[in-house]
């Protein structure tokens, strides 16, 4: 019997192994493995859920039950740039609806959809913890705060033209952001390489960093 993830690239396979090691109980690895699988497949496909099931000894139905509970496990195709506009109360008070409309306009993608090309997915999201920098959005979960409708549209056009390989929060904030929730301090070298949060073992621009524990 070959491993269900034998077709994953070796780097992901190594990460899968370290993820399982970090928990006293293998079931706890379901969530990080779902991120890893969606990094490999582009989103949480049925195949991805079956792989995670095989890795954790759960049934695919159990994995689906977990995956579908959380909004960040995308079970539909996602664009290269996932633009998430916060429309919760603080951002709403500061004009979030207009920002969302501007993003829809600039990308040609309506809330909840992905374009044919697979470049953009646009969604409105609940509070992302950037209320002090409202209105705020995230591209592949990297923050851009204090945006205006015009700046948000500009950001989308820039993503389309520049097509950055790595999405860097600091870069976007500098070019298109306004007042952030707080002074960010030192610049941050890491960014996202896919519409999966860029954290250690999952979607970091520096694969293999962090998350080893």
């Amino acid at each position: 019997m070959s491993s269900p993830i034998a077709h994953w690239d070796p780097e992901y396979q190594r990460r899968a192994a370290t993820i399982v090691e970090r928990y006293p109980d293998v079931r706890s690895a379901v969530m990080p493995l779902l991120y890893l699988a969606s990094l490999h497949h582009g989103h949480v496909t049925e195949e991805a859920m079956e792989e995670v099931a095989a890795l954790t000894g759960l049934t695919a139905a159990q994995v689906q039950s977990v995956a579908s509970f959380y909004t960040m496990y995308k079970r539909e195709r996602v664009g290269r740039y996932l633009v998430s506009v916060c429309t919760s109360i603080s951002c709403f008070l500061r004009g979030a609806d207009e920002v969302l409309a501007a993003v829809e306009g600039a990308t040609g993608v309506v809330d909840g959809e992905t374009d044919d090309e697979g470049l953009f997915t646009v969604e409105h999201v609940e509070c992302i913890g950037a209320c002090g920098g409202a209105p705020a959005l995230q591209v592949n979960y990297e923050f851009v705060e204090g945006v205006t409708p015009a700046k948000a549209a500009e950001l989308c056009r820039w993503l389309r033209d520049a097509r950055p390989e790595v999405v860097l929060g600091d870069e976007m904030q500098l070019l298109f952001g306004g007042r952030p929730s707080f002074d960010p301090g030192a610049p941050e070298p890491e960014g996202a390489i896919a519409p999966v949060p860029a954290f250690g073992p999952y979607g970091s621009a520096r694969p293999g960093t962090g998350g080893g524990r």
Binding site: D25, S28, A29, M31, Y35, T56, V66, Y70, Y73
Partner: peptide, 29 residues
């Protein structure tokens, strides 16, 4: 002491401590 960082995945309810524990155990929050 070992420290493990676990990333949530978009569910406010996981801030409620017992939902959080379920989530950390690989279950629905």
């Amino acid at each position: 002491l070992e420290v493990t960082i676990h990333l949530g995945a978009g569910a406010y309810i996981c801030g409620e401590e017992t939902a959080l524990l379920n989530s950390l155990e690989g279950r629905r929050g």
